[in-house]
Nucleic acid binder design. Structure first.
Length: 567
DNA sequence: GTAGGGTTAG
């Protein structure tokens, strides 16, 4: 929110004595981004002997949601309970919303069930609470109860439902929600449309996101509509699309804001952008340009933007730029630390990553599941198995964080790199969650490195069952057979691919050097400087072997039968 | 002059 210099204006009201005048100044303070001031005004009002009324509390509740302070919320709530307006539907709904936004969902729900009267806003407030936490079951029960009690869902309800569905990433659910909304005749305004754009893009149908965007009247579109399209492109690994929408947005006279920058930056770090750049301008160049734009428009002071830049620089390989930015932040958030740890892990600075983790904890910050993922990635890329176990144990025992599929994947990768294939398989079998293709893929990769046909066969068959159309596991398994001279196995895989109608596109690497894109395709060595490049790769492989780095660092130079299927 | 809504960093 843009802050206006309203403080002097507010001060002149302090001499007023009616509740209307106090309410006005409190409202003005909240609506102009001075939530703390609003709460101070309330204190002063009480000191002046003026009692709040039913209009005061919703403003105060809003102030609490802005400062996001649970204690403040409790104080305001106690004032509500002492006032004659504790049962007012506006006041109670404001209280429910206040607890939801302060992440006190239980308190919000307890309050909600005790409400003597509820209108559509009350239902929506609690529904959004459960929706943002991804409790789809609770949300659908609420929707049922709401309709049963005679309250019709409106466009705000539909947005809450969409938010809940987003957690499932199910395109089918988004589509059925869309038709439900049309069926019950809700008013599809620009806010609803923006939600659907994001929902379709996140659930994998960018075409439908574009359809919704194009259906919004040009004059009705807001900066959020454009941001949603740019973010959608970023989700969809479509760097060029993001840049294109960005250009159109500027052409239509919209000013990029914080979200635009963040989404554009996130599209910069997509593989497509990192390798290919955009025409004459590479992803890093665009990133730097966005950097300059952000500085000159005062956006660089924002922590979210800074964190996005740290991520972008780290992913573009400019760890020094990332570091510089990280250390320049006066108050770093958990996300800043996590981004930096992940950046170090990605760029091979494993010790630095783990040191940062310790520093962060010493400062009193509590690592979350993403921080642990970054730490485990550092361990896994660095081959630090013992450290990996240490973090894995710490996360479950000390921090009570339930490991997700990605954490397990890191551990499988770690065990696999060390050649502990049996242990990795046992670990997968003991996991309390269902292994996904990523986990099996990590183990299959390790089987390839350690040429283990037996476990490789078992693992690849799990993958063939899960994703029969994906070519990579067939290729990996064929390579394992080939590395052992098992041409019968290679032939069997070929037959299986044919009968399953699996098609594979040749593996390619793209590198941008001085604005020019160089493409390397499996089995083709037709680059003008191919001779020198492949000699250098041979020499690098030799050095890696001498340095006894984890085997998976080995540059894949196989050009024999083994790579016939590599992807 | 009151409550519930959209995009957005790891």
């Amino acid at each position: 929110m843009v802050k206006h210099p309203v403080t002097p204006l507010l001060n002149q009201f302090l001499n007023f004595s009616t509740i209307g005048q106090w309410n006005f100044s409190i409202r003005e303070a909240v609506n102009h981004g001075y939530a703390h001031k609003a709460l101070t005004l309330f204190r002063q009002m009480k000191q002046n002997g003026v009692e709040p009324n039913n209009w005061t509390f919703p403003f105060l509740a809003k102030a609490c949601t802005k400062v996001s302070n649970f204690k403040c919320s409790q104080i305001i709530h106690s004032h509500v309970m002492k006032s004659p307006f504790w049962s007012d539907v506006f006041v109670q709904t404001a209280m429910v919303d206040m607890y939801v936004k302060c992440n006190q969902l239980d308190d919000a729900y307890n309050l909600f069930v005790r409400m003597s009267m509820r209108d559509v806003a009350s239902w929506n407030a609690i529904l959004h609470g459960f929706a943002q936490s991804g409790f789809l079951d609770r949300v659908s029960c609420l929707l049922h109860d709401m309709r049963f009690s005679g309250i019709q869902p409106d466009s705000v309800t539909v947005m809450g439902l969409t938010r809940a569905v987003l957690h499932t990433k199910s395109l089918k659910l988004v589509k059925s929600l869309h038709s439900f909304a049309i069926q019950i005749g809700i008013d599809v305004d620009v806010l609803v449309a923006n939600t659907w754009i994001a929902a379709y893009a996140k659930c994998g149908d960018f075409g439908l996101a574009e359809v919704v965007f194009n259906e919004i009247d040009i004059v009705t579109r807001t900066v959020v509509s454009w941001n949603s399209m740019i973010a959608g492109c970023a989700n969809f690994v479509n760097f060029f699309g993001a840049v294109n929408y960005y250009k159109c947005m500027l052409h239509e006279g919209f000013r990029p804001d914080l979200s635009t920058i963040v989404s554009l930056l996130s599209s910069c770090v997509q593989p497509e952008a990192l390798f290919q750049g955009c025409g004459q301008i590479g992803a890093l160049e665009l990133g730097k340009w966005i950097d300059n734009y952000s500085i000159s428009n005062g956006l660089k002071d924002n922590l979210i933007i800074c964190n996005a830049f740290i991520d972008m620089y780290a992913k573009c390989g400019c760890l020094n730029d990332a570091r510089e930015l990280f250390y320049a932040i006066p108050v770093r958030s958990l996300v800043s630390w996590t981004t930096m740890i992940a950046g170090c892990a990605l760029n091979g600075e494993f010790t630095e990553a783990l040191n940062l983790f310790s520093q962060m904890v010493e400062l009193g910050l509590k690592p979350n599941h993403v921080t642990f993922l970054a730490a485990l990635q550092a361990c896994s890329h660095g081959g630090l198995l013992e450290k990996g176990w240490e973090y894995f144990g710490m996360m479950t025992r000390k921090y009570n964080i339930c490991p997700g599929v990605d954490h397990y994947s890191c551990m499988v990768d770690l065990l696999g790199r060390r050649g502990k294939l049996k242990e990795a398989l046992e670990f997968i079998h003991l996991m309390p969650i269902k292994p996904d293709p990523g986990i099996w893929g990590a183990l299959l990769g390790a089987c390839k490195v350690h040429r283990n046909v037996k476990i490789g066969e078992y693992v690849s068959h799990r993958l063939f069952e899960l994703e029969p159309q994906v070519a990579a596991p067939y290729a990996e398994m064929a390579n394992i057979y080939a590395s052992k001279g098992r041409w019968d196995g290679v032939a069997a895989i070929r037959t299986m691919m044919k009968s399953n109608k699996v098609r594979k596109s040749p593996g390619q690497s793209l590198v941008q050097v001085k604005g020019k894109t160089h493409i390397f395709t499996v089995e083709h060595r037709d680059h003008p400087e191919g001779m020198l490049i492949y000699m250098m790769l041979d020499s690098l492989n030799l050095h890696l072997k001498k340095a006894r780095l984890p085997l998976s660092y080995e540059v894949d130079m196989n050009c024999s039968e083994a790579t016939l299927f590599s992807s």
